[in-house]
Simulated scan of single mutants.
Amino acid sequence: MRQNARTTITGDTVVLVPYEQHHVEKYHSWMKSEELQKLTASEPLSLQEEYRMQESWRQDNDKCTFIVLDKSDYNAFNGIKGQIEAMAGDVNLFLSEEDGFKSAEIEIMIAEPKCRGKGMGKEALLAMLRYGIDELNLILITAKIGFDNEASLKLFTKLGFSEISRSEVFKEVTLSLPISDEMRKKIQQLTDHLLIVQA
């Protein structure tokens, strides 16, 4: 999505930056993992396919993605090298054209094992919710999570998502978060510390 191409979101534990070509090789190495393929319901891609995918994330109006950086690692380096060294995962929104891009499906992946269990997933998820609500004017956000992904199910339900359906075929739960005025205020309160910069 061109809209977030110059956006950086900084929190306490993470920094979110747009997905650029210099991130692709490390991202591609992550997605060779069978565990991550299963958790994200993804098929392995060739490196060239991954580069084309990154380009579509940049250009398409219905996709918004940020690379999640470990803030402590990022602060230890400079520039592009710092971003690559600090890469922890990604967070995405798939917007629905059917309702004029007012709803989206959200995904979060903390790929680096050393970055898990530190609250980075929660902060990255909250940052993307705030961005989706304030900048993209979303009124409904959904998520699809595998039956056995207990950590993600717990995280999403704690933030207010509720189950709306189950698929025995795909072994996943669909969760929904309608953005009421009350929910908007809650997300804003939880993300008041974020610094959102448009370069």
Rank of each mutant, 00 (worst) to 15 (best):
R2Q: 14
P113L: 07
L69Q: 08
C64F: 09
D90T: 09
E35R: 13
Q198V: 01
N61L: 03
D73R: 14
R52S: 06
G160E: 02
D134S: 12
L138E: 08
F77P: 00
P18L: 08
S56I: 09
E98Y: 11
K186N: 03
L93F: 14
L93I: 10
K26W: 09
K63I: 10
V169Q: 10
V14G: 14
E35C: 08
D62L: 11
I110P: 03
E182R: 06
L125T: 08
L153T: 03
Q21D: 15
E172N: 14
L126M: 02
Q37N: 13
L36K: 07
S72C: 10
R116L: 01
S33Y: 04
I106G: 00
K81Q: 15
S162F: 09
S152W: 03
Q188K: 06
V91G: 05
V15S: 07
T191G: 05
T10F: 00
G11Q: 13
S96D: 15
S72A: 13
M87P: 01
L195N: 12
D60K: 07
D134A: 11
V173Y: 01
S46P: 01
D148S: 07
V15C: 15
G132H: 10
N61V: 05
L69T: 13
N61A: 01
L195T: 15
D73K: 09
M87T: 15
E85T: 09
A151E: 11
E135D: 06
E85D: 09
K186R: 15
E97G: 15
E105P: 03
D148N: 14
K154T: 12
K63W: 07
I67W: 06
M109F: 04
S176N: 04
G117I: 08
M53D: 05
I110T: 05
D99I: 09
R166Q: 13
M53A: 13
T10K: 06
N78Q: 14
E43W: 04
A143I: 05
S165N: 05
Q189F: 00
L45H: 06
F156C: 02
I145Q: 00
S42C: 15
L36A: 09
G11N: 05
E163I: 04
T40E: 04
L159K: 00
K26D: 12
A143K: 01
I187D: 03
N75W: 10
T191A: 10
G11V: 07
E43R: 15
A86W: 03
L47H: 13
L126H: 07
V17S: 00
F77I: 01
F77W: 09
S56Y: 09
H22N: 12
T191I: 13
G160H: 06
A143T: 01
N4G: 08
K32Y: 03
R184F: 13
S29L: 14
C64W: 04
C64I: 09
L159S: 01
E97K: 10
D148Y: 05
E25Y: 10
N4M: 07
K185D: 03
I179D: 07
I145S: 01
Q21P: 13
M109H: 11
